[in-house]
């Protein structure tokens, strides 16, 4: 498993682009250098409705970054803008820039399919394919042009399942349907499936919200292990979860404009221990102390 993507389309930059731009919001020592994904003045629209306004942030390599905030603040929208999953909604539009290894992923010449091969995704509800456990993993590799032999594929499947801490539980029933697993196992299967395409970033959209506390704990442990090889960005409703797993946390809030539109915006993006102990913004403090949200 490699932590650099095979850069056939998006070339990692050799110089640091726009060194000052991401630092404005993050404003800490870790803001130096380039991130794996950077957004700059990103707005996301659904038709005329501006869902998220002016998000500038920088996600570091091999770190877990958490996005938190009240319902409707656009944190999932931001996450989906990072690998162009919003493209699937016909009315969705992104302004500003999102850079992956320095390349703007919303450039017209960029193929969104190539983006999603490098920036994998795990969803809120486990969504394994109605195929066998083995095929759930192998499928992603196959469509990504896997050329190896059958035994190479078996190694790949086993490797992905091992990394997702699922191998011991399923090694004797690889031909059974992925849907026969428990919710927590299904979610780890989905993580294994995402790993098998060898992305370098994994986006997780509330990956534990449908799981019980024990399954949640296993996923969190898994995330901490995966951090060694992947950059992870997670949306979570659970502030304790953000505190437990993430290195940096972004707090989003929502404001009502005069026409009653609810637009989300980034309040602050700080190292997690700072955000939870000495938040820089009043809104953050109100949220984490439970005054709203």
């Amino acid at each position: 498993m490699t932590d650099t993507p095979d850069a056939t389309v998006v070339t990692p930059p050799t110089t640091v682009p726009n060194p000052g731009s991401g630092a404005a919001e993050s404003g800490t020592s870790s803001a130096q250098g380039t991130g794996v994904i950077e957004t700059e003045n990103m707005d996301v629209f659904y038709g005329d409705f501006k869902a998220v306004a002016d998000v500038t942030m920088k996600f570091a390599f091999n770190e877990i970054s958490a996005l938190i905030g009240p319902s409707g603040c656009g944190k999932s929208t931001v996450l989906r803008a990072l690998n162009r999953m919003n493209d699937l909604i016909p009315s969705a539009r992104v302004d500003g820039e999102v850079r992956y290894h320095g390349a703007n992923i919303y450039d017209p010449s960029v193929d969104p399919v190539e983006i999603r091969r490098r920036i994998g995704m795990v969803f809120q509800k486990p969504n394994p394919f109605p195929k066998s456990i083995y095929d759930n993993i192998a499928w992603g590799a196959k469509i990504n042009g896997f050329k190896g032999s059958k035994s190479d594929m078996r190694d790949l499947v086993q490797g992905a399942l091992e990394q997702a801490a699922l191998w011991d539980e399923v090694k004797d029933k690889l031909t059974e349907s992925g849907l026969s697993l428990s919710g927590g196992q299904q979610q780890r299967l989905c993580i294994a499936r995402a790993i098998a395409t060898q992305p370098d970033v994994i986006l997780m959209d509330e990956p534990c919200s449908a799981l019980d506390p024990i399954a949640t704990l296993r996923i969190e442990e898994l995330m901490l292990e995966l951090k060694e090889n992947y950059s992870i960005i997670i949306v979570t409703h659970n502030m304790q979860q953000a505190a437990r797993v993430s290195g940096k946390t972004a707090f989003f809030n929502v404001e009502l404009d005069t026409t009653g539109q609810r637009t989300g915006y980034l309040v602050e993006f700080s190292p997690t221990d700072e955000l939870f102990t000495s938040p820089r913004m009043k809104a953050t403090e109100d949220y984490i102390t439970g005054r709203f949200g």
């Binding site: 699937l88 994998g120 394919f129 992603g140 469509i143 499936r193």
Partner: peptide, 10 residues
């Protein structure tokens, strides 16, 4: 959710 899973895998 199945379509999204598929797109999400590239």
């Amino acid at each position: 959710s199945l379509r999204q899973a598929s797109y999400g895998l590239g």
